[in-house]
Amino acid sequence: MHKATILKIDQVTHDVKRFRLVEPEGFDFKVGDATEIALDEDGWRDETRPFTMTSLPEERTLEFTIKGYPDHDGVTERLHKLKEGDHVLIADPFKTFRYDEPGVFIAGGAGITPFLAIFRDLEKKGKLNGNQLIFANKTSEDIIYRKELEAMDGLKIDHVLSDEDTAGSHHGMIDADMIKEFVPDLDRRFYLCGPPPMMEAVQEVLEELGVKADSVEFSD
């Protein structure tokens, strides 16, 4: 495990924080990679949780966008209690997603994190055109990096809110009718990430609509 110092902590939404860390020497990762993080505290060093780097490799610092769960005294909630200057332990990186071709990204809540670095990298290279994001959340206050995502040139976004009916978003759960409305041409590459029950439901919908299994890449 590598020891990394927290440089900066920012509040992103009411329950999501952005952590900027010093990148340890020899920590080489690719866009779409994740790592395991543990607290550098007695009794917690063996308790690891996976998180995706939302920064780009060339930045030479590591960014993580992490949702906290106040009702559960686990690693993520304890991470939310750390301060700038504290340390965490991070393992070597591993692959979550690799961008193959333009497609439809379907994310639920914090499931947006593996896609953030991909979108940032594509925008930087001027290659974001042709990609689409269907982003499901409970309310508008839960949408992570909304302003940044909506400002990305070439990325088409559809917001879906389960607990709120508001202008600029679609109300309900992602179902077959919604996907047919958002994606008229289903002969596309699909990238999925979110809570397992949601991803299972979306996979079933895509299968029902005739999307080939080898056109779908997913992580949770």
Rank of each mutant, 00 (worst) to 15 (best):
P184Q: 07
P102I: 07
G109H: 06
F64E: 00
E84P: 06
I174Y: 10
M198G: 10
L161C: 13
D163L: 15
L56V: 09
D163N: 15
R120K: 14
G194R: 00
N131A: 04
F135W: 11
D175A: 09
S162V: 11
E150I: 02
F64P: 01
T76W: 00
R189E: 10
F115K: 11
H80M: 12
E59P: 08
R98S: 13
K156I: 04
L133D: 01
I174W: 09
K83R: 13
H80Q: 12
L89E: 03
E77L: 03
G111F: 11
G111Y: 07
I174S: 09
L133R: 06
M173E: 04
M173L: 14
H159Y: 15
E181S: 13
L122P: 03
H159P: 11
Y145P: 00
M178Q: 05
C193G: 05
R146H: 11
K83W: 05
V104K: 12
K81P: 07
V75G: 02
E77D: 11
L82C: 07
K124F: 00
L79H: 02
E164A: 15
L62C: 09
F105A: 07
V202Q: 08
V183P: 08
G109S: 10
S140T: 13
F119W: 04
E63C: 01
H72T: 02
N129W: 02
C193W: 01
K67M: 08
H159R: 12
D187S: 14
L89H: 01
F64W: 08
H170E: 14
G74Y: 05
E123R: 07
G111K: 08
L128R: 02
T166G: 11
K138W: 13
I90D: 01
Y145T: 02
G68N: 09
G194I: 01
D185R: 07
G172N: 08
A136Y: 00
K83H: 12
R120W: 05
M178E: 04
D185P: 07
G154T: 03
L79G: 08
G130D: 03
E77R: 10
H170T: 15
D153Q: 10
T139C: 10
H87E: 13
M199K: 11
H80D: 06
T139P: 12
T96M: 14
E164H: 15
L133E: 01
N137R: 01
G103Q: 11
I90L: 15
T76I: 00
N129M: 03
L122H: 00
H72Q: 06
F182A: 12
I66F: 04
A151Q: 11
M173S: 10
C193K: 01
A201S: 15
F64Q: 02
F105T: 03
L155E: 07
K124W: 00
P93R: 10
G154S: 03
L89F: 08
M199N: 12
F105M: 13
F97L: 12
L192W: 04
A117E: 08
D142N: 14
L133A: 04
A117C: 12
I112K: 10
D100L: 08
